[in-house]
Write a protein that binds this DNA or RNA. Structure first.
Lengths: 158, 158
DNA sequence: GCTCCTGAGTCTTTAGTTTGAACTTAGCTA
DNA sequence: TAGCTAAGTTCAAACTAAAGACTCAGGAGC
């Protein structure tokens, strides 16, 4: 973005051009930015929904899980739904709300980045087009659904 | 993903079908999942590169910034480059490596999600196609760059 | 009825991080 | 020589997380 050797011509950026409370990314980070929250949402995407299953799967302390779930329900990403299995007593499932499901693209972007740069083996997750079977990638697209290469993307602050 | 009222027919998922250390998302979360790291990368994307500018812009304690920058340099997301402005002594700029720049799509996905669900006002960030001026959105695309709607995406674990 | 079991929590104590403030260092500049 | 600034480091106090014990509710078995 800036070229350190060729200052003074191009002065360094001294502060972010977008205030933190007007930036969707910063707001999202406040909600999702901790060691557990993204992992909990990952489980939710995979369909794990019960307190004790989450706890066992993540090895997360009960107290922390309890607080995080409350925060996520409070923020509207998860919904706590009662259900009854067989003759069991009523229990609760934590499931993604539409707002939570809408995080899918973000988590997929994160996953694909992790696969490219951190993962050693091949990915066990396969995202394909149901019609053609083609592999899918995250990209920026125009309203009519045409991908635009990175060099052709214009980033502007108004 | 599962329908709480209509169990037993469809049993609940008891654990994530992908081990944490084989999942790009989980690996990425380990690196990026804390209160500051994503905010630091956000600054880096906006072009803020100097220690004290980051510190002032984020109101982050020096010690934390120092450790986070070291971690990010160590992980290969940032590069610490010496530079010299005018006759000043040599200083260091923290800038995105190619690996860090490759996180752009993820951060944009996060930003667009935050804008849809958390932000009250309109976004000051404008992402457009340089050729046509059209607004751009994150989506899943086929290898030839055609967006695929969510309902048509097939998610499989191998 | 009484006891045990399980899912889903809460409470408490200990361990680990984060903060903020003060101190340090290197290279200018007056 | 003293002063300034960017970029750290160090340290005590405050906060947060972790691990384990405790609680509670509704069945199931005796």
């Amino acid at each position: 973005m800036s070229t350190p050797e060729t200052y003074p011509s191009e002065p360094p950026v001294r502060s972010a051009p977008v205030a933190r409370d007007a930036c969707g990314m910063a707001l999202a980070t406040e909600l999702l930015g901790d060691r557990w929250t993204l992992l909990i949402l990952r489980e939710a995407f995979y369909g794990v929904s019960r307190f004790d299953d989450l706890r066992a799967d993540l090895s997360i302390p009960r107290g922390i899980l309890s607080t995080r779930l409350k925060a996520l329900v409070g923020a509207g990403l998860l919904v706590k739904t009662p259900y009854r299995q067989g003759r069991d007593r009523v229990r609760y499932a934590y499931q993604l709300s539409p707002m939570g499901q809408d995080l899918a693209l973000t988590l997929i972007a994160l996953m694909q980045w992790g696969e490219r740069h951190l993962q050693t083996g091949p990915s066990p997750v396969r995202l394909t087009d149901r019609r053609t079977g083609q592999m899918l990638q995250i990209a920026l697209v125009t309203p009519d659904g045409q991908a635009v290469p990175a060099q052709q993307v214009d980033f502007q602050i108004v």
